[in-house]
Every structure is written in C-alpha cells, then in structure tokens.
Write a protein that binds this DNA or RNA. Structure first.
Length: 175
DNA sequence: AAGCCCATCCGAA
DNA sequence: TTCGGATGGGCTT
C-alpha cells in the first residue's frame, strides 16, 4: 500500500446498518475507511491489515459527521453534493484520486461502465487500471465504486462481496 | 528495471 | 459461447 503517511492515529466505531455491520475509521483530517461486513472482529482485522503501523483506537463518541454518514450508508441520501461535503482522508496516487473523484459524481440509481469511467478521467485506454483503482477504494458506499459495472451489464466484482454490490444497486434502482 | 496481477473490452471463430 | 490479444497502473522482487 502506497503511503505518504504520517502514521497518524486512527479512531474507529462499528455501527449496525442496513447491509450489516459498518466499521468507520477516521484520522484528525477526515474519514479513512468504511468497511462493511457481518463480523465485528473480522472488520477490526481488516482495518489493522489495511493500516499497518497506525495506532488504532476505539471510541464510541458521536462525531459531527456521524448522522450524515449513517444516512448515506442506509441509502437515504440521493444527492452526491451532500456526500461531497464530508471530510475524507484517503491516500492514493494521483490517478487513483482522480478515479475516486469521478466516482463521487455518479448519483444513486445510475451505473457506469469501466470504459466510460476511463473516458471521464481522460484516460480512455486505461480501462483495467480504472478497475484496479475502483478495487482499491476503502470507503464503501461513500465512494460509490459499486456503481461501476461491466459494459455488458454484468456486475463484475466487489471488494466486500458481490451480494453487497447487487443489494446496493437494487436498493438504488428502486426509487 | 522487469515481471506479474487485475473488479475490462472487443473481435474472431 | 469461449478465447486471446491489447492495455495501463500498482506492487513486489
């Protein structure tokens, strides 16, 4: 994992959400990770695996963005602009950042192919690289990589399980 | 510096 | 329907 890291301390909470359990982690600068799953211990392990060398602290205190993030995870936010106001702190290459930024412009209920996304980022040839960047996303739902599917419509893959991806798409399609 | 992996896509058979 | 080639970025060695 590439990092221009200052090994800052990360704080985390686990919430029950519609899809199961969500682990949310943040630094002083903003949200660093949103993982979804079923098993709390597994989520904690995933966090440790993704942020080696960081001190990790559990803290259940309410956060200023808590309500908004919960609403996004539960599919109650339809406007990408609202999600855009959340403080994020994700590290990645310039290419990854540009892909993630483009993802955040896709509204719920819409899907996009990997090649279309490549065009939007100005690298029409870099289709597979775009897929890699999607796969490297650590902010589930907040950065909506689940809205990217193959050109023929098949769902492709999802870091947190294809079932979750399809559940998210089904939820957003009906509105 | 080189090789390997990959959540792609398209055309040919 | 399967198959293989082109393809770019990221990670490991």
């Amino acid at each position: 994992m590439t990092r221009s890291d200052r090994r800052s301390e990360l704080t985390w909470q686990i919430w029950p959400v519609d899809l199961g359990q969500a682990l949310v982690a943040w630094s002083p600068r903003g949200l660093c990770a949103v993982f979804i799953g079923d098993d709390d211990a597994a989520l904690q392990a995933e966090l440790a695996r993704n942020f080696p060398g960081h001190a990790l602290r559990h803290d259940d205190a309410a956060q200023p963005w808590g309500h908004a993030v919960r609403a996004v995870l539960n599919g109650q936010v339809g406007d990408p602009a609202q999600v855009r106001d959340l403080p994020l702190d994700v590290s990645g290459t310039a290419f990854q950042q540009s892909v993630w930024a483009a993802l955040r412009d896709i509204p719920p209920g819409q899907t996009v192919s990997y090649s279309e996304l490549a065009h939007r980022v100005g690298r029409p040839q870099a289709v597979r690289a775009v897929a890699s960047a999607c796969a490297a996303n650590v902010l589930a739902v907040l950065i909506p990589c689940h809205r990217v599917v193959r050109r023929d419509g098949s769902p492709s893959g999802y870091r947190w399980g294809l079932a979750h991806k399809q559940a998210l798409l089904a939820r957003e399609a009906s509105r």
